[in-house]
């Protein structure tokens, strides 16, 4: 018997009688203060939030805040930057990116995460390898909790999807919080 059969038969023999799944509908509780909550949580986890009314405003903030960024990749059609490209054949080409500006499908108020899938990225590694990350979401695309988030994702077919909540961080040295572990050192979210 190979390992697969061995494991499956042992599991089948040893698993207990059927336990039913709980319903999760009761966790869907609407919340009207999602924007306020999103901003508060993002700030608390080391991210930066800007409520903006136009792409011009975003462009303006980017110009001010990332003066030292040499290589910027913008995935927003409304914010054309010199570094924009549809695809990179090799993810290693993104090694030197200083700032990536990406779109996210939606944000989650309870934890300030944004949901990004690989069809929106030239390479999956982009939001991780970039030194700084800027994300654009629409004000109307903030859901209250993770229950709503997965309602929204539904059975979408992606190759890779990720919730990103704030800059990469570590507290492994004596529980001292350090922003910028292996991924971006900052995360700025523009709420349009």
């Amino acid at each position: 018997m190979n390992s697969r059969e061995k494991i499956l038969s042992a599991v089948k023999n040893n698993q207990p009688a059927q336990n039913i799944l709980p319903e999760l509908q009761s966790f869907l509780k609407p919340d009207t203060k999602v924007l306020e909550k999103y901003i508060n949580v993002l700030t608390a986890i080391g991210g930066l939030a800007h409520v903006v009314n136009s792409y011009a405003e975003i462009d303006n903030i980017i110009g001010q805040e990332y003066k030292e960024a040499q290589r910027i990749i913008s995935l927003s059609k409304e914010l054309p930057m010199p570094g924009r490209a549809e695809k990179y054949a090799d993810p290693h080409e993104l090694e030197t990116v200083d700032l990536a500006i990406i779109n996210a499908q939606f944000g989650v108020a309870e934890n300030a995460a944004v949901w990004v899938t690989d069809d929106m990225l030239p390479q999956r590694v982009l939001p991780f390898i970039t030194q700084q990350l800027a994300v654009i979401i629409k004000r109307t695309d903030i859901v209250p909790t993770m229950h709503y988030a997965y309602e929204r994702i539904g059975n979408a077919d992606y190759g890779f999807g990720v919730f990103i909540a704030g800059p990469s961080k570590t507290a492994d040295i004596e529980q001292s919080l350090v922003l910028g572990a292996h991924g971006p050192k900052t995360m700025r979210v523009f709420i349009l």
């Binding site: 919730f163 909540a165 704030g166 991924g183």
Partner: peptide, 17 residues
């Protein structure tokens, strides 16, 4: 685990790139 509302990254791997 740490009192964070969620980890910074919750990565869903479905297909190889």
């Amino acid at each position: 685990a740490t009192g964070q509302p969620v980890t910074t990254y919750s990565s869903h791997f479905k297909k190889p790139r």
